[in-house]
Amino acid sequence: MQHISGVGARIIAGAALGLASPAIAGGTTAGTRIDNQATASYDGPGGTVTVPSNTVSLTVDELLDVTVVSADPGDVQAIPGSADRVLTFTVTNTGNGDEAFGLASAGTLGGDDFDPAVTAIVLDSNGNGAYDAGVDTVYVAGGNDPLLAPDASVTVFLLSTIPGGAGDGHRGRAQLSAEASTGSGAPGASFAGQGQGGGNAIVGATGADADASGFYAVSAATVGFVKSATVADPFGGTSAVPGSVITYSLVATVSGTGTLGNLAIADAIPAGSSYRPGTLTLQGAALTDAADGDAGELASGAIAVRLGNVAGGQVRTVTFQVQVD
């Protein structure tokens, strides 16, 4: 039996009041007290009386939650046999208390073509989001588990060696997992008295254990090399006689999805012939014979042409002429 009347006034508030607790994704910080006390006032025989209620108190317990996401925009390109290839992950404490997280890696997984050999987990200790060898701290399980405040993140790198036998275009998966050090398990599982602020710790929706994968993609390249010769003799024929001019064509064809770095072509002038000055070309454009700013020269009885980095699918053609002695 209640006798209550509402107040129907329409009111425009000046401004919304700020929230007493910070609005973080994980919610109210663990250890925060919730105290509730109401007050009654009424008119009694002796005038207006104010009566406080008892105060009921709760302490917000710690929710254990974590997420791990890959921070790489796509597959990380790598060549077979290379070491210290870097996958990047972000580990975020989505719970409501300060929590340390144990990290683990795995490279032998399904759903890929080869198994990267994970050689280290590295913490981005200078916080720049990029792996800095010798600067960022190598993770040691139980030794430097990252301690994260609610909503805080840490960037973590996985370093792997790519097997030498990995084929061009193959993908290899590696995984980083993070687990709350207080405990993990089925959502709702609790750890009495182990929460921040003296309360309990409770496993949240993430199970307090999360993982994410990144992929390495092998981009290998190979070069095919074909040398051909055409002979023009002084009499309009194609016989190799003294005075004949032989035009050599060297064709380098790069195939695969990768790039060959600093590809170079060298070819000795055959015995019994002499180089014809000024006949060295690359892609049909003349190169000087001297060792100077351009890509090729004649030196020590051989032509040498530097092709630089050549990506798969491209072709480089070098020609030069000799005269039969």
């Binding site: 929230l19 007493a20 607790s21 109210t28 925060t32 007290r33 919730i34 105290d35 509730n36 006390q37 109401a38 007050t39 009654a40 006032s41 009424y42 008119d43 009694g44 025989p45 207006t48 009386v49 917000v60």
Partner: peptide
């Protein structure tokens, strides 16, 4: 619990900040 009616009875409960 008294012997006389309580009139103009008003109960006010401030919300705890975390709720």
């Amino acid at each position: 619990r008294g012997a006389t009616p309580a009139t103009d009875f008003v109960v006010t409960n401030p919300m705890p900040g975390a709720v």
